[in-house]
Amino acid sequence: MVKPGDGYKDIPKGGLILEAGNAKNYKTGGWRTKKPILDKETCINCHRCWAFCPDSSVLSEDGDVKAEIDYDHCKGCGICAHECPVNAIEMEKE
């Protein structure tokens, strides 16, 4: 497993990634300029944000979307806020 800061002698040739299912190890949350904040009081648990999120960053647990947003991977695109029928998600500047 390649770690941040590894040198050229220690990493696989040609940019190969030797572990499958590795996308989750790449934390894209740092790309975000605006952060979705879910107002759990207003949320009607319709799962629209969960369905539309292109990065699977709206987490649903036991049928309840009122869990959390995965800020390690959410890029802050704002699709969730746009799709929310009750305006329960607000985009807040990082």
Binding site: D6, G14, G15, A20, N22
Partner: peptide
Amino acid sequence: PIAVGPLDLQDF
């Protein structure tokens, strides 16, 4: 299984 040709930015 491996990934070939991934995004390879400033870090690598």
